[in-house]
Computed example of a mutant assay.
Amino acid sequence: MTCATAPLVPLIQPIDGLTGLELEMMERVGHFPMMEDPRGFETRLRRLIGGDSAGST
């Protein structure tokens, strides 16, 4: 039995049809950055959606 798999696409290379895509890299986190570094994740998320983290609790 043969299993065909698609190669992984590096996210740091342009992907057709995704113009304006912003990539945020977080260090020292794994698969769940929102759980491993909640403040860092929130800061980046707010910046990306147009808010800021000032006054957040």
Results as ranks from 00 to 15, higher is better:
Met26Arg: 13
Asp52Gly: 11
Ala54Cys: 11
Gly55Pro: 09
Gly17Ala: 08
Asp37Thr: 05
Arg46Leu: 15
Ala54Pro: 13
Glu36Leu: 02
Arg44Met: 14
Thr43His: 02
Gly40Met: 05
Met25Pro: 14
Met34Trp: 07
Pro10Cys: 09
Glu22Ser: 13
Phe41Gln: 03
Leu48Gln: 05
Thr5Lys: 07
Ala54Arg: 12
Leu48Val: 12
Arg46Asp: 09
Gln13Ser: 09
Leu45Glu: 09
Met34Arg: 05
Glu36Ala: 08
Phe41Ile: 06
Gly20Pro: 08
Pro7Val: 10
Ile49Thr: 12
Gly30Asp: 02
Met25Val: 15
Arg47Gln: 13
Met34Ser: 14
Pro14Cys: 04
Ser56His: 13
Gly40Pro: 09
Cys3Arg: 09
Arg28Val: 01
Val9Gly: 10
Met34Pro: 10
Asp16Leu: 08
Gly17Arg: 03
Leu23Thr: 10
Met1Cys: 12
Leu23Phe: 07
Val29Phe: 02
Asp52Phe: 02
Pro33His: 00
Gln13Pro: 01
Thr19Phe: 06
Phe41Asn: 03
Gly40Asp: 02
Val29Gly: 08
Glu24Leu: 13
Glu42Tyr: 08
Cys3Leu: 10
Glu42Met: 15
Pro14Met: 02
Met34Thr: 15
Ala4His: 02
Thr57Asn: 15
Gly17Tyr: 02
Glu42Ile: 15
Arg39Asn: 02
Arg46Phe: 14
Asp37Gly: 11
Met35Lys: 14
Ala54Trp: 06
Met25Ala: 14
His31Thr: 09
Gly40Glu: 01
Glu27Gln: 14
Met25Trp: 05
Phe41Met: 15
Ser56Cys: 15
Pro10Phe: 01
Leu48Glu: 04
Asp16Cys: 13
Gly55Arg: 12
Leu45Gln: 10
Asp52Tyr: 00
Phe32His: 11
Asp37Trp: 00
Asp52Leu: 06
Leu21Gln: 14
Leu18Cys: 10
Arg28Asp: 05
Thr43Gly: 11
Thr57Glu: 08
Pro14Ala: 08
